[in-house]
Write a protein that binds this DNA or RNA. Structure first.
Lengths: 257, 257
DNA sequence: ATGGTCAACTGGTCATACCAGTTTAAATGG
DNA sequence: CCATTTAAACTGGTATGACCAGTTGACCAT
């Protein structure tokens, strides 16, 4: 019997949640004016402070634009939002994972990881090498527990990103990690091959030890390919449920904008 | 006579600004408890609503942790914040650009751009190819106006990111663009070589047209190297103001944080 | 056509309650 | 004396009603 901490959300959180869902995969196109704060209070049955807190957060997230005296309008989040939004985009209304978003995350991860490893090798401190070794050793010890491996792998990359001494990577990694953790359990299967490739993690750690940027980058790239391949197969399976179809004609339904 | 829209910030914006600056490069270490909301009202001389709006935003940005009944404490933003924060990290108190942050942005850009170009080549629609051509043509027309080129280059990458059909890249690009625009004028010199390399932009566009992912990626990588080299030179120049010094020993003045 | 005025919006600020959790320390029982 | 219970005294969360401050558009005078 596993119990989880009960989710406790404030009113403004609920309002934020509702409005952001409505905007992100709702019928509110960019430019659409939101109801006035007082009207929202009326509809949502909450006080104006809660509405204002939520609106301020939506504004910060790049989902709406607020103008004193003017009004509040929906923005095109694909042009104004930032990585934080991935969490909300990852799931459909019904709770299923949006595999296009998942693929996006895996692709970005695959592009960043080699450079992170490369920089880490060039800039790591002696102490950080030891920490990396510890994580790799822990992974070797838990070789058969996939969920434990997942946590350790995240720790490994967290550490490596720290070594890279690149604040942009660190912040981007935080965002990706949040998203990844949202679909962690769902991806255990897809990632299993990557997680089990302990030798690859060790190769990266070794390359970092000898300050071999190129080697670290190449090892990281090779490691990433496992997960990427998994996601691609999963996508292909869902898009072409019938295995035999080999149609490769591209659709031209993309002149909508 | 060039006039800009007057900056108009609300109280909660001001509070958010002040607190985030204090946290990001202030003396508030992670774990430090913030004053209570009522105490903040007293110190900042504003009403509680404004304080709460600011605190909610800080919480969303990953800078603080709010607990009902408990208190509000400072988080380690390097582990919890996301790319949005780059804007605030980019400038020191005195308004000068933090070149370490700038270098981070350039590095991340250099890692992402080739993959964006590669994916764009694989997934672009016919219409998008034409749009890319238009931007390149516009760049050719404004060949000698660096600021115009900068705007067009951003447009080029915006378009390319759209072609890549990768929502994570799009969102990350939004964040990076905000940061980049913050230091755009300061970087005109550093980027001039890259901006003038019209042939490279054209190579990318051509590769995208013939769906040559590898070619697009390689061209993008080559293009990025201009800007990266510029930033590295600038960093080296600032760290070793005396040109003749060939000392390559690394300073250890970085344990300040 | 231009600029001014006014009324009816919009969001922004304020003060004052009170509700709801958490923490602290005093009161209580052993 | 110590462990437990209890009750303030915090903390953040919600509610209300008023008023300030910009924006818009209709109307009017010039």
């Amino acid at each position: 019997m596993r119990l989880k901490p009960v989710a406790r959300k404030s009113l403004s959180d609920a309002v934020f949640e509702q409005l952001s869902q409505e905007i992100v995969h709702g019928r509110m196109r960019p430019g659409t004016p939101l109801p006035s704060e007082r009207a929202l209070c009326d509809v949502l049955r909450v006080n104006r402070g809660a509405v204002r807190e939520a609106l301020k957060r939506l504004s910060q997230a790049g989902l709406i634009s607020i103008q004193h005296g003017g009004g509040t309008r929906v923005l095109d989040f694909k042009q104004t939002a930032s990585l934080d939004l991935l969490n909300r985009l990852l799931f459909h209304h019904d709770g299923t994972v949006d595999l296009r978003v998942a693929r996006s995350v895996m692709e970005m991860r695959a592009a960043m990881a080699p450079d992170i490893a490369r920089l880490a090798a060039l800039r790591r401190s002696p102490g950080q090498v030891l920490q990396l070794d510890e994580v790799v050793a822990a992974m070797a010890a838990q070789e058969h527990d996939l969920l434990a491996l997942q946590v350790l792998a995240l720790q490994f990359w967290d550490l490596l990103t720290l070594c890279s001494d690149n604040i942009a990577y660190q912040l981007a990694f935080n965002g990706l990690r949040h998203t990844y953790e949202g679909m962690r359990e769902a991806l255990v299967e897809v990632m299993s091959e990557e997680l089990r490739d302990l030798a690859a993690y060790r190769r990266i750690a070794d390359a970092v030890r000898r300050k071999d940027g190129e080697g670290a980058g190449q090892s990281a790239q090779a490691l990433m390919q496992h997960g990427s391949r998994g996601i691609l197969q999963l996508l292909a399976a869902l898009e072409h449920p019938d295995e035999d179809r080999a149609a490769d004609g591209e659709e031209d339904d993309d002149d909508e904008q």
